[in-house]
Write a protein that binds this DNA or RNA. Structure first.
Lengths: 130, 130
DNA sequence: CTAATTGCAAACAGTTTGCAGGCGT
DNA sequence: ACGCCTGCAAACTGTTTGCAATTAG
């Protein structure tokens, strides 16, 4: 299975992820990539995104009630913080899962997902901005 | 804002949640409730579900890539286990979040969501079935 | 009786797919 | 030149909404 072709649109899409450090949704990607390739279509974004996930270049980040977002894979194991005010998603380094899980018998855990929510520094209600 | 009317369909839908202990999706709810009210429509299910969430009778449980599921609220704080084989979702008692979170400055956490995935006892690959 | 609720179908949003033409290799 | 990739639009799925008829209070 040879690599996919290096088209202008594919490159533009990859660039978007290199320049934006947070998980992006298809519409956001379209928007940003269109600055480079204006006639880019949403279908192409979806195809590229799916291919890139398949190739493990991207990881899918799913948040409750929202379209899936994508971020570059190969990052350290981490979790996400969802700002309920500005709706942005941030990466949190390190694992937030308890080490001594106490699961019922018979459950085999192969993966986990943690999302914290609240307000990010920029939106924090009690910022110490005097 | 008076309580909503006690219609046959609303009651049927509430019953579904009393009888099923796991998070259910709209389609599942429709299916189960139709045993009681055959001509029940999907739109009514959605309306009821949304109303019930609004009234805090139900909680929304979102899993990556799947339609939202709903479960009765007022349960103890808990998290979810998603069996990747049979696709059912189970409740896990207790909180699985690390107690000593080490977040960057400025993030205010108001909630969190944890989903483990793997195989449930019924689907476990290495069951000790000799 | 009066107005909220229902069921149907049309409207919507997000995502996928088919096809003819364009473009990497 | 070959065939993958793109763009457009149509198809699909999940969810919401408009409206006339039904029914709870």
């Amino acid at each position: 299975m040879p690599r996919q072709r290096q088209t202008r649109q594919r490159i533009a899409i990859e660039n978007v992820f290199d320049h934006e450090p947070r998980p992006l949704g298809p519409a956001e990607v379209l928007d940003l990539a269109q600055e480079e390739v204006p006639k880019l279509g949403i279908a192409t974004v979806y195809r590229a995104l799916n291919d890139m996930v398949e190739e493990k270049l991207l990881r899918v980040v799913e948040l409750p009630g929202q379209p899936a977002r994508y971020e570059k894979s190969g990052l350290h194991h981490h979790h996400h913080f969802h700002c309920l005010q500005c709706d942005k998603v941030f990466d949190l380094e390190g694992c937030l899962l308890k080490s001594n899980l106490n699961l019922p018998e018979g459950f085999k855990v192969t993966g986990h997902d943690i999302t914290l929510s609240g307000s990010c520094p920029a939106c924090a209600p009690d910022s110490d901005e005097s």
